[in-house]
Simulated assay, not measured.
Amino acid sequence: MKTLPIIRVWLAPFFVAIAAFAAPLRAEDAVATTAAPWQDVITRQIQAFRDHDAPAAFSYAGLGFQASFPNAETFFVAIIQSGYAPIMESRSHSFGEFKLIGDMGVLQQVKLIGNDQQLYEAVYQLTEESGGWRVQGVQLMQPNGVAI
């Protein structure tokens, strides 16, 4: 599995969270049959990226991201240059397992099919902020194989 670059905002907590995600999920941690509220945020941000709608994509980023960039366009360009084009150019996505982290955090697996028919996997870290669930980081990976 090839790991693609990660935007470096709050890396230490993100890597601790990824390590926590590697632990087995318990039934109370994941509910596969019910859509979770943060999944809507992920879907909306992915669609905003697909639509090249920088302000909308930026609005779903956490306060740490928003404070790190002077505006939505700068954020959008940084995402493209950091290797996240497979998300922006994806044809479809679906949700895998998730793991709750405390009362206000979650790690969510997302599977994507790129325009190139390649498979991609992402782990989104989100926290619940005053304005709702927001993306704090994404680790994008490319497993072996192609979509059919």
Rank of each mutant, 00 (worst) to 15 (best):
F65C: 10
Q39I: 02
A19C: 12
L126H: 11
S90V: 08
R26A: 10
F21I: 07
D116L: 13
Q142H: 15
G62Y: 11
P24C: 12
I80K: 01
V31G: 09
G96H: 01
T74A: 08
Y60D: 11
Q142A: 12
A72L: 12
S59N: 10
G131A: 13
F95M: 04
Q136M: 15
I46S: 00
F95H: 04
L4A: 00
L100T: 13
N144M: 15
G132K: 02
F75D: 13
S68P: 14
P55A: 03
D29L: 03
W38K: 10
D29P: 04
M88R: 13
D103W: 06
E73N: 15
Q136L: 15
M1E: 09
A57D: 05
Q125F: 05
G62F: 09
T33W: 02
L63M: 13
A85W: 13
E121T: 10
I79A: 06
V146P: 04
L4F: 01
A17W: 00
A54W: 00
K111P: 00
I80P: 00
E89H: 15
A147I: 07
A67W: 06
T33I: 02
V106M: 08
F65P: 09
A36F: 02
P5W: 03
I80W: 06
G132A: 00
Q118Y: 13
D29G: 11
I7Y: 06
Q81D: 14
P70M: 09
L107T: 06
L140F: 12
D53Q: 03
Q108K: 03
A20L: 07
Q39T: 01
M141C: 08
I87Q: 06
I79S: 10
L107D: 01
D53R: 06
A22P: 02
L112Y: 12
Y84A: 02
A57Q: 11
M1R: 05
N144D: 14
Q117K: 12
K99M: 04
A67L: 10
A67R: 09
T33Q: 05
M104C: 09
A147M: 08
F98Q: 07
R26C: 09
Q108T: 05
I101M: 00
I101W: 04
L25Q: 04
V123H: 14
F65K: 04
Q109L: 02
Y60T: 13
F98Y: 05
L126Y: 12
A61V: 00
V41H: 03
Y60P: 08
Q109N: 06
G62I: 10
M1N: 05
F69W: 14
W38R: 04
K2S: 03
T43Q: 02
